[in-house]
Amino acid sequence: MKALLYKDLVSGKSTYLLALVIVLVIAAYLTFNEAMVIIPFLFAFMPMVLNTISFSKETKSDFAKFAFTTPITRKDYVKSKYSVAILFGMVALLSGCILGCLECVSLNLALIIGMVSFALPIIISSIQIPFILKFDEGRGGIVIVAINFLIFASAWLIGDSLGGLVDLIQTISKLNIYLIVGIICVITILILTISQNIGVVIMKRKEF
């Protein structure tokens, strides 16, 4: 799996750098507009963008045909595709908690923001990856566009009704915080596990 992550990193480094610059610009814009709380949610986009880049490069070079003539298993291949989402989930969790504290919201609220931003990239990637594995750049791409649209629309709504959202989160945060965090965590892991298993089944049936 290390090899696949290394390959993704070196083959797409310039594109990844560009994606990072775009995220930083958006983050700066959000900070300027005093909407820093949205920054962790930006990480939801990142794995989706990186996965799309990685898959499109692989499709172009028919990389899977080479990979599966090496000791790389189809299971490892699928798992590697989720690593980026998990990594960004962690970063989002951390940044969510830090920004929550910086914005002087309660610790509970900061933790919820962190957990939601941890769950989002993983859940979005869990929906995206099996579709790409199954349909390659065709129908998988359409699903990605649809997910992108939904996220943009959500971000737009969040931007418009930030106060309402904060109220909602504050209401939820009055519930048992550990219960909420636990539920989000379990749901995320469940979706991730189901998605990985579906991905492995798809890959095992796939021919090259």
Partner: peptide
């Protein structure tokens, strides 16, 4: 050769080292 175009030969070496 089914390896991404952007990879350098020395990176292919590293990739294979991690694979085989």
């Amino acid at each position: 050769l089914n390896i991404p175009d952007e990879m350098k030969i020395k990176e292919v070496d590293k990739f294979c080292k991690l694979t085989f």
